[in-house]
């Protein structure tokens, strides 16, 4: 009677391959780590010099403050800003009419600034940032 042949399966990899396995694992994890994309928001900010001076008065003006936001001088709470800017931009079809000049007080945090500018863009507005030094008033001589 023939004895049943026992199948001998390889239960452990050869020790000479350990280095190769480790190397391939490192490469795998490095590739995984490097392809993780960041989520972001694109923003095109034209320089304020490109906004024609004579039209500046007709533009919507938004001032970002620490606790509130001013829309054409009117104090608005952050949670009401989206509706307020949508109302101001409603009916404006021309691209130049949609320009919103954004200024910020020195102590306005970035989280409020990005919230305001993204809500302006979502409402169809074109954000133009006016910096502190550009707001200097020239006194008549």
């Amino acid at each position: 009677m023939r004895a049943r042949r026992q199948s001998k399966l390889l239960v452990e990899s050869p020790s000479s391959a350990t280095g190769d396995i480790a190397f391939n694992l490192i490469v795998f994890f490095l590739v995984c780590a490097s392809i993780q994309p960041d989520a972001g928001r694109k923003q095109t900010i034209p320089k304020s010099e490109t906004v024609e001076k004579q039209e500046e008065n007709e533009n919507i003006k938004v001032e970002v403050r620490r606790t509130s936001v001013l829309v054409n001088g009117e104090v608005t709470a952050y949670n009401q800003f989206q509706d307020a800017i949508a109302r101001k931009l409603a009916g404006k079809t021309n691209q130049t009419e949609k320009i919103v000049v954004v200024t910020s007080q020195k102590d306005a945090p970035y989280k409020q600034w990005i919230l305001v500018t993204s809500q302006i863009e979502d409402a169809g507005g074109v954000v133009t940032v006016q910096m502190e030094e550009e707001r200097e008033v020239m006194l008549p001589q």
Partner: peptide, 21 residues
């Protein structure tokens, strides 16, 4: 604060960069 990040935005704009926040 704005006094810190606004000059950064200005510098990127000056260099012709396209901003992604």
């Amino acid at each position: 604060l704005a006094q810190r990040f606004e000059p950064v935005l200005e510098a990127v704009s000056e260099a012709g960069g396209e901003l992604v926040h």
